[in-house]
Amino acid sequence: MATKTYLEAIRDGIHEEMQRDERVFIMGEDVGAKGGVFGVTDGLQKEFGELRVMDSPLAESCIVGVAIGAAMNGMRPIAEIQFQDFIMPAVDQIVSEAAKIRYRSNNDWSCPMVIRAPFGGGVHGALYHSQSIEAMFCHVPGLRVVVPSTPHDAKGMIVAALRDPDPVLYFEHKRAYRAIKGEVPDGDYTVPLGSAAVVREGDDIAVFSYGMMVHTALEAAEKLAADGFSCEVVDLRSLRPLDREAIVRSASKCGKVLIVQEANLAVSVASEVAAIVAEDCFDSLDAPVMRLGGPEIPAMPYSPPLEHYYLVTPDKVERKLRDLAAY
């Protein structure tokens, strides 16, 4: 067990799985000599060569489309999209192709692959290097969508994703890359896809979140604890499918629910969690379900006051929690 950053944990998982399974390869923009724009694939090309760590052309449909073909021909590709914002040209390949390959072939074909992309803001990335557009993919049957929030889960989930028989979108919060450190077990382990984790136990308010916002929620929960309110913080980890049982368990236990995400709220992960709580926990609720997320503007603006205005901060979460506590 060693303390590692979120970024190092992802790299460890990829590295170890590439050593174990020669079907695994990675392709994307700048993943080779440079090691990726954030450094996730640093050193991998030296060890595994230019074919298994392949600098792709600047063409996202190509990156994903080629990965799909390779997956159908027995490989386990990782398609790296440099920023989640630039996944749009690949949406046809992801939604029309990867997601439907097993279903439309009546289980004759499958598409085991991982699409990795950094998302999220607060890094002066402006409109096109800050977005959180994961909800788009959560609508699509045939895909798995996961977002780890800790180094432990980052490694365990990338390995699980690479062993999964279906396409997995693995989104990494770019602010977590170096900011979040934690204990990472050595060697081979997986964190099952599709399961949420209670990261702080409590009785008064259940807080559901994912990615960097889990840490924001934990900070706010700590503040409320000082005043005697106990929050249960649940890291969703898997956004499609959502861990319905875990959501219902914590929501029913606490009777009050706050959902926190960085993305804007309309038709989002928070909407779906709220719907599950409304459907399954109606009799246990002591307050209306509350949601906190980004504003309904196209994306995160650049100038610091504008960027800060967009972000969900521990203060904003704390205020919302106090509203709920007082309800």
Partner: peptide, 29 residues
């Protein structure tokens, strides 16, 4: 049809060309 290495194809025109590249890349590897 998997038996004959004919990959499953959908309706969007053009996507299959990239799949062919990925298949060939896997063969190369």
């Amino acid at each position: 049809c998997r038996r004959y290495n004919i990959i499953t194809t959908g309706s969007p025109v053009g996507t299959q060309l990239l799949h062919a590249c990925g298949i060939a890349l896997a063969a190369r590897m």
